[in-house]
Nucleic acid binder design. Structure first.
Length: 432
RNA sequence: GGCCCCAUCGUCUAGCCUGGCCCAGGACGUCAGGUUCUCAGCCUGAAGACACCGGUUCGAAUCCGGUUGGGGCCA
């Protein structure tokens, strides 16, 4: 008979959900799922001045988007003030605590406080170095440490998985557990994520909040996979891991002790890998809001065609947002031609004539799938006796306006015969 | 400043507990080559680390001590 694991994630709604906090939430969730335990979401909003409902919304939405579903909660500390006062009152009555200038304070006896951290091992603290513990402030609100311990005891939390910036709080909290007559849970202090300068991850460089990453086109799978690899590893050199597999393998005790640096390039790579693993249907569903926002897609847009588009771009996207800059020519004829591309590939002797020949071939091609179009084009290339690129590159510029695009034949097939011929014609006319 | 935590390629990590299989493996990034119509992708290869000093041991990335460096909490 093993103990039923109960863990909690306890954010303060004083800011958006930070990527570092998201990782703490993720590790709690992974451990809960791994052990078939329970994840409690607790909102630490006793500081009414700094708490804001809009941040609570952000946190809830971030967790939902990441797929981190709490089993219980959210439970708001601000609605439990009576409980903290009652517990403090009890400590006052038993003589463990005393009133000082309106606050309730608990003195600390000189001794050594020890606990065994799941990740760090045994940590001893000389309690004479600690100051008396304030339980209830003079304004009647509980301190962080007191509310936290009262709740963790009340909610029967068995494992506290949190950032290792809380190590210093732990001895005080252990004293509080004892005073409250509760057994302390197990503590697992996970290292913080730091930024490129090895400092605490800050807002300065790029995105730090979960929803910002979402808006920049990262998949929740990408963020989760990347965060999973920060401080934990499956030990078999795998990098791209489905979350179900992580749940199967994850154990907090395997989390590394060292702070991990956030690395945007690796995140981008992981994200691209996750995009490649999406079904085209799912990729399209994720792309759709962006395409709609651009005004490129309406309810009338052909679904099969959109699916084809998703397939064409799937292997090239690092983020969903890239579709906005890569695919404009697929949705509108009103795209701009890159001057440099025109100069390099279209303004050459013979180009007009060759494009005209290509147009004829494509007009009479028996079908317009990528295969057929390629056969027709290469047939012409062979007759002209030139390197394939000398026809393909000008055609690409004529059709997409740019030097870089997905494979030309895929693009032609995607656009269809009419548009392809029209754009070739347009280029020919502008050159003569 | 006091106390605490940490220390493997530029970065994420495997190995460390249970010393020899490690002149240290993988991944991102970088560089070179290959593949394709461009780019991306994919494939191959290269450079690249056990912070330092001492101890224990036949033998240390692995154990112990110190130093240095980074981070955290409190002030």
């Amino acid at each position: 008979m093993t103990m039923h694991v109960r863990v909690r994630f306890a954010p303060s709604p004083t800011g958006t959900l930070h990527i570092g906090s998201a990782r703490t939430a993720l590790f709690n969730w992974l451990y809960a799922r791994h052990t078939q335990g329970t994840l409690v979401l607790r909102i630490e909003d006793t500081d009414q001045k700094r708490s804001d409902p809009k941040f609570l919304d952000d946190i809830l939405e971030s967790l939902r988007w990441l797929g981190i579903q709490p089993d219980e909660g959210p439970i708001h500390q601000s609605r439990r003030l009576e409980l903290y006062r009652a517990k403090a009152e009890g400590l006052l009555k038993s003589g463990r605590a005393q009133r000082q200038e309106g606050a309730v304070v608990m003195p600390i006896e000189p001794r050594v406080i020890s606990f065994t951290d799941v990740i760090h091992g045994r940590i001893d603290t000389d309690a004479t170095l600690l100051k008396d513990i304030v339980l209830i402030k003079s304004d009647g609100t509980p301190t962080y440490n007191f509310a936290c311990v009262v709740d963790d005891a009340d909610m029967r939390i068995t494992h506290i998985i949190r950032g290792d910036d809380h190590i210093a709080n732990t001895p005080k909290q252990i004293i509080l557990y004892e005073a409250l007559g509760a057994a302390p849970p197990l503590f697992a202090h996970i290292p913080l994520i730091v930024d490129e300068a090895r400092a605490r991850l800050s807002k300065r460089k790029g995105a730090t909040s979960v929803l910002e990453f979402r808006d920049e086109g990262f998949l929740s799978e990408g963020i989760v996979n990347f965060l999973t690899l920060l401080g934990w590893s499956p030990k078999d050199n795998r990098e791209i891991i489905p979350v179900e597999e992580t749940i199967r393998l994850f154990d907090v005790k395997d989390v590394k002790k060292t702070a991990a640096q956030f690395n945007a390039e690796k995140l981008t790579w992981v994200n691209a890998q996750q995009i490649k693993r999406l079904t085209p249907e799912r990729l399209l569903a994720l792309l759709l809001p962006r395409l709609q926002a651009k005004g490129w897609v309406t309810a009338q847009t052909n679904q099969a065609w959109l699916l084809q588009l998703a397939r064409v771009f799937q292997g090239r996207l690092h983020t969903l947002a890239e579709i906005e800059t890569l695919a404009d020519f697929c949705f509108t004829d009103d795209f701009s031609y890159q001057a440099q591309a025109v100069e390099k590939h279209l303004r050459k002797n013979g180009t007009v004539k060759e494009l005209a020949l290509l147009k004829e071939r494509l007009a009479s091609a028996p079908a317009f799938d990528a295969q057929t179009v390629e056969t027709a084009t290469r047939g012409l290339v062979a007759e002209l006796g030139k390197p394939a690129g000398e026809l393909i590159h000008p055609a690409r510029v004529a059709i997409t306006g740019r030097e870089v695009s997905p494979g030309l034949f895929e693009v032609m097939a995607l656009l269809g015969r009419d548009k392809t011929l029209l754009r070739l014609e347009r280029a020919i006319r502008s050159l003569t």
